[in-house]
Amino acid sequence: TLATPAVRRLAMENNIKLSEVVGSGKDGRILKEDILNYLEKQTG
């Protein structure tokens, strides 16, 4: 899974598996926005 260290840390802090997040960046890269959108969906 393609993600920057900052995105990986954000995911780890929120107990998110990067494999569950759909990346919207180039080549499927997971962006910070993708993590935040995933969190919004989870908290509903």
Results as ranks from 00 to 15, higher is better:
Glu40Ser: 13
Lys17Ala: 09
Thr4Pro: 03
Lys32Ser: 09
Lys17Ser: 12
Thr1Arg: 02
Thr1Gly: 11
Thr43Pro: 11
Ile30Met: 03
Ala6Gln: 14
Ser19Thr: 13
Glu33Ser: 14
Ile30His: 02
Thr1Lys: 11
Ala6Phe: 05
Gly23Val: 01
Glu33Trp: 05
Lys41Glu: 12
Gly23Leu: 00
Val22Gly: 10
Gly44Glu: 15
Gly25Trp: 00
Thr43Phe: 07
Leu2Cys: 07
Arg8Tyr: 06
Lys32Ile: 13
Thr1Ala: 07
Pro5Thr: 13
Val21Leu: 10
Ser24Lys: 05
Asp27His: 15
Asp27Glu: 10
Glu20Cys: 05
Leu10Tyr: 11
Val7Gly: 06
Leu31Arg: 07
Ala3Gly: 06
Asp27Trp: 04
Ile16Phe: 00
Arg29Met: 10
Gly25Pro: 01
Ala6His: 09
Lys32Pro: 14
Asp27Pro: 01
Pro5Lys: 15
Arg8Gln: 13
Tyr38Asp: 07
Arg29Ala: 14
Glu33Arg: 15
Lys32Trp: 06
Asp34Pro: 04
Lys17Leu: 09
Asp34Gly: 01
Ile30Arg: 01
Ala3Trp: 06
Gln42Asp: 13
Asp27Gly: 12
Lys17Gln: 12
Thr43Gly: 15
Ile16Thr: 03
Glu33Lys: 13
Lys32Cys: 06
Leu31Glu: 12
Ile35Trp: 02
Ala6Tyr: 08
Leu2Arg: 05
Ile35Ala: 05
Arg9Gly: 06
Leu2Ile: 12
Gln42Glu: 14
Gln42Ile: 06
Val7Gln: 02
Asp34Thr: 00
Asn15His: 08
Glu33His: 09
Val7Pro: 02
Asp27Lys: 07
Glu20Val: 06
Arg29Gly: 07
Ala6Ser: 12
Ala6Asn: 10
Gly28Met: 02
Asp27Phe: 06
Lys17Ile: 11
Thr1Gln: 04
Ala6Trp: 03
Ile16Asn: 01
Lys32Met: 10
Leu2Trp: 07
Gly44Tyr: 08
Gly23Glu: 01
Glu40Pro: 11
Pro5Gln: 14
Arg8Met: 12
Pro5Asn: 10
Leu10Thr: 04
Asp27Ser: 07
Asn14Arg: 10
Leu36Asn: 12
Leu31Thr: 15
Asn37Ile: 06
Glu20Gln: 11
Thr4His: 07
Lys17Pro: 14
Lys41Leu: 10
Lys26Leu: 08
Ile30Gly: 02
Leu39Asn: 09
Glu20Ser: 11
Ser19Lys: 09
Thr1Ser: 06
Thr43Trp: 07
Val7Met: 05
Leu2Phe: 08
Glu40His: 05
Ser19Cys: 10
Val21Ala: 03
Leu36Gly: 09
Gly28Gln: 06
Ile16Leu: 05
Val21His: 02
Ser24Gln: 05
Ala3Pro: 04
Lys17His: 09
Leu18Lys: 02
Ala3Val: 12
Ser24Met: 02
Leu2Val: 10
Val22Cys: 13
Glu40Asn: 12
Gly28Asp: 05
Pro5Arg: 08
Thr43Met: 09
Gly44Ala: 14
Ile35Pro: 03
Gln42Trp: 07
Leu2Asn: 09
Asn15Gly: 02
Thr43Ala: 13
Arg29Pro: 01
Asn15Asp: 08
Asp27Ala: 07
Asp27Tyr: 07
Ile35Cys: 08
Val7Arg: 01
Val22Met: 11
Glu20Leu: 08
Thr1Trp: 03
Asp34His: 00
Arg9Ile: 07
Thr4Val: 01
Pro5Gly: 06
Tyr38Ser: 10
Asn14Glu: 00
Leu18Gln: 02
Arg9Pro: 00
Met12Thr: 08
Gly44Asp: 12
Lys26Thr: 11
Met12Val: 06
Asn14Asp: 10
Asp34Gln: 00
Ala6Ile: 10
Arg9Asp: 07
Ile35Leu: 11
Val22Arg: 13
Val7Lys: 02
Thr4Asn: 11
Asn14Trp: 08
Gly44Thr: 13
Tyr38Pro: 06
Arg9Cys: 03
Gly23Trp: 00
Thr1Val: 14
Pro5Met: 12
Gly25Phe: 00
Thr43Asn: 07
Gly25Gln: 03
Lys32Gln: 10
Thr4Glu: 04
Leu36Pro: 06
Val7Thr: 04
Tyr38Arg: 13
